[in-house]
């Protein structure tokens, strides 16, 4: 057996080096649409995280019994089962969050991060490694969405998680632009350039 990448790196790579949103640039649709506030961003991130981790583990568990030729339909059934579970659970216990996230909860099924990890990682790795990989990517996704949600809520409403953190004058006439789609594009561009800068420096040193 060749030298394997360390287990820890499966977990940590998802957070920065292979951050799904800011480096791999996948799963952008829910990222742009649901990060209008900190709570919505984190809520979406956590919902997708549950599906990502659970589907990674299950795909890894059954991988020896999944024929290569029909693996994609099987992955999709596994993923959509977990999406439906989180859909029911949010509806039952977090109805206000469910109302805001709306159609983006069922759309987690087609989030390319999740199918991507099932196909590229969990189908070829053990359960524990797949769990770590899912956890890392999930954390990276949730952090990216959460940070975007915090910044957009701060600028467009003057609050963070609904708490007023800016002077009343700012909250009266905030940067409304940030709550709309163009604000999301602008912000993700800025974040991407910051991350690029940071990772470029790292490479130079190395």
């Amino acid at each position: 057996m060749n030298k394997k990448p360390s287990r820890l790196s499966y977990f940590t790579s998802g957070i920065v080096v292979e951050n799904p949103v800011l480096i791999l640039m996948i799963g952008l649709c829910p990222t742009l649409a649901t990060t209008v506030s900190a709570r919505d961003g984190f809520g979406m991130g956590l919902a997708a995280s549950f599906v990502l981790i659970a589907s990674n583990v299950v795909v890894s568990l059954v991988r020896r019994f999944v024929p290569n030729s029909i693996r994609i339909p099987i992955f999709i059934i596994i993923i959509s089962t977990f999406v439906t579970i989180i859909d029911y659970v949010l509806q039952a216990y977090q109805p206000s969050l469910y109302k805001v996230l709306g159609v983006f909860v069922p759309l987690i099924v087609v989030n390319c991060i999740i199918l991507g990890r099932a196909e590229a990682f969990a189908y070829h790795h053990g359960v524990w490694d797949s769990f770590l990989d899912g956890l890392g990517k999930a954390l990276g996704f949730t952090l990216a969405l959460g940070v975007m949600g915090i910044i957009r809520e701060l600028l467009s409403a003057g609050t963070v998680f609904g708490f007023a953190v800016t002077p009343a004058g700012f909250r009266e006439s905030p940067v409304l632009f940030m709550i709309f789609a163009p604000g999301a594009f602008l912000l993700i561009g800025i974040l991407k350039s910051i991350v690029n800068r940071l990772t470029a420096k790292k490479e130079e040193k190395a």
């Binding site: 059954v62 024929p67 029909i70 099987i74 059934i77 596994i78």
Partner: peptide
């Protein structure tokens, strides 16, 4: 098994 596996998963 191709058919059976899909049925079992469903």
């Amino acid at each position: 098994w191709m058919v059976l596996s899909l049925v079992i998963v469903c």
